[in-house]
Amino acid sequence: MTTEPAIRVENLNVSFGDSHVVKDLSFSVASGESYGIVGESGSGKSTVLRVLSGLNRHWSGTVEIAGQTQPKIRDKAFYRAVQMVFQDPYGSLHPKKTVDDTLAEPLAIHAIGDAETRIGRAMSEVGLPASFRFRYPHQLSGGQRQRVAIARALVLEPTILLLDEPTSALDVSIQAEVLNLLQALRHERKLTYILVSHDLAVVAHMCQRLLVMQFGQGVEEMTAQTLAARTPKTDYARQLLTASEGFRRV
């Protein structure tokens, strides 16, 4: 495919007061691609995601989604095209809303009819039994909550999904389930993903290309093959690789 990229970021800079969190970052993601951003905590990777989603408005540079330059304050159409799944499923669901309320709200905001079938479909797509529909978040496990969060993101039928460490708050056995679910959904719906993670194994499993970040800068962009072959070009990326396998041997 040689069409225009789904997401293009050029010379992105983000500052909070004196600290310059993201410096001159540029990358682009093709439509239908799954792109990873890795780095240690404080490297600015989550900030990039918050800029893309419109939550962070203190940035400069160019952000294009499907060929359109995005202003700081996004319009409603943007939110139908781009959705986000948060890191902590314990914090990202409103504690006083049932699954049904949570899934119905985006449909109500965008005045989309046919809520009954859409909610039912979103729930079955993420593998939640219909009997969970009127449960509150405190009646769900972490993995089930994350499934609700994914269903909430999908109910507006976006083309781009931003994933902010979607599994790091989950149990190891649940992580694989949620990752496989995300993989399957991407293939089914031809979604474009940006996945932020500190876990190289997750990124290797999910993404075709990835960007290594350090101190707010892009250090190296590489393909999943390079990652699998462990042949990065820069020192920092090599260090990160070694660190990630550090506890494999005893």
């Binding site: 989603s53 419109g54 939550l55 996004r74 409603k76 943007f78 939110y79 139908r80 959705q83 986000m84 948060f86 890191q87 902590d88 914090g91 990202s92 669901l93 409103h94 504690p95 709200e105 985006p106 905001i109 965008h110 969060a149 909430r152 507006l156």
Partner: peptide
Amino acid sequence: QQDYIAAIRLQGASQWRIVWKH
């Protein structure tokens, strides 16, 4: 500051809706 409010903002809800309903 909570993520669930960020999530509802990302769905395009107006400020009144966020304050009153969430």
